[in-house]
Amino acid sequence: MAQHTISVLVEQTFDALPRIAGLFSGRGYQIDSISVGEAEEPGMARMTIVTHGDEKIIEQINKQLNKIVDVVKVTDLTEEPFVERELALVKVSATQSTRNEIMQIVNIFRAKIIDISPKTLTVECTGGHAKVQAIISMLRPFGIREIARTGRVALKREFRGET
C-alpha cells in the first residue's frame, strides 16, 4: 500500500476543511498527515494530504476530492517528482552533560536551537519526512518532552536536474 502525497488547491471557506476531513473519516480513508495554509492567490489555500491505500482507494480519494465544490484542483504529486518539507519543534531534556552532545546532533542535521532553559533545549528541524524522523530518533534517548510537527507540505518539482 503505497503512500501518496496529494496537493489540493481549495477555496478558503468555512466549510472546506471539515468537508475534506469528513470525506476521509466518512469513507474510511487514512490521513497520515495533513497541512494547510494560504496559497499564492488570495482566498485560496493549498492543502497537502499524505495518505495511503490500494490503487482503487487512491483513485477514489482523488475523484471524491474533485467532487467537493470548494476544491479547485487536485494533484497526486506521487506520480511526478516533487519536493516536500516538514517542520518539527522538539523540546528535549538537556543537562549540563548532555547539552553539547545534543548540539552536535543539531549541527549534523542542520537544525537550530530556538529556545533554551536550564533543563531543556527546543530544536527546530526542517526537512524531508525521513530527516525529521531521523533527528527525532537521535534525540529520543535524551528524553523528549514535547513534539509539534507541521505535517508535510509539498510542491511539484519543476527542474528535474536539480535536487
Binding site: 466549510d15 468537508r19 466518512g26 465544490v69
Partner: peptide, 14 residues
C-alpha cells in the same frame, strides 16, 4: 445544520 448535513449534501452554505 451544515455539520449535520455535510455528508448528505453536495454543498452547504452559511
Amino acid at each position: 445544520t451544515i455539520g449535520i448535513t455535510r455528508p448528505i449534501t453536495k454543498h452547504g452554505f452559511l
